[in-house]
């Protein structure tokens, strides 16, 4: 295509002999410039994505700690209210208990999804996800298994945690 155009210029305009190498140089320079700009943009995008991932990660890690405490509190409230036997208040604490469970488990599952995705690869080289989170995720798995709340889609709530724990349980050479 490039050659064809130069031939056209030569043929129709009868251009001097130095025009062709000059046009070629300008085209090459323009291509390099375009490549450089694209490369710079890509690096900027990667940095922005990396920052976004870090922010999401920090938020999720905080959420799990906060939601775990809220969930524990909801259970304490429930058991203390049963001693007062106030039916109206009891209904409220039952709702609070189910909701706290749902929020806690789903925030842990979101974190498992993020860790299990390829998105974090190469971004947090000093962190050992398996070491940090396998015990926490196993605990969430146990709590989920023994929770009696009737929540639609309860079985799907810890899909990512199950996948991640299965992957971690495999021998190292079988992992991705």
């Amino acid at each position: 295509m490039f050659q064809f155009c130069n031939e056209c210029i030569n043929h129709y305009t009868n251009a001097p002999s130095w025009i062709t190498p000059l046009a070629q140089s300008i085209s090459a320079f323009a291509a390099i410039f375009v490549f450089f700009v694209a490369w710079k943009n890509l690096r900027g995008l990667k940095r922005a994505q990396s920052l976004q991932a870090q922010m999401n990660l920090i938020n999720l890690e905080n959420d799990i700690v906060i939601n775990y405490t809220k969930w524990k509190l909801a259970y304490y409230n429930y058991t203390s209210e049963t001693e007062k036997a106030n039916p109206e208040k009891l209904q409220l604490v039952i709702i609070e208990k189910s909701s706290a469970f749902e929020v806690y488990v789903s925030s842990a599952d979101k974190l498992a999804a993020l860790i299990g995705s390829d998105f974090l690869i190469g971004q947090f080289e000093n962190r050992d996800w398996q070491n940090e989170y396998s015990v926490i995720f196993k605990k969430v798995q146990q709590i989920h298994l023994t929770e009696d709340s009737i929540i639609p889609g309860k079985d799907q709530m810890i899909r990512n945690i199950n996948q991640l724990l299965t992957m971690w349980a495999k021998p190292k050479d079988e992992k991705k």
Binding site: Y75, Y78, T79, T82, K97, I143, T146, E147, D148
Partner: peptide, 14 residues
Amino acid sequence: FYQHMNSLFLNIIL
């Protein structure tokens, strides 16, 4: 009744 027992067992764990 069992749900309440379940919550009490959880409190023991927590």
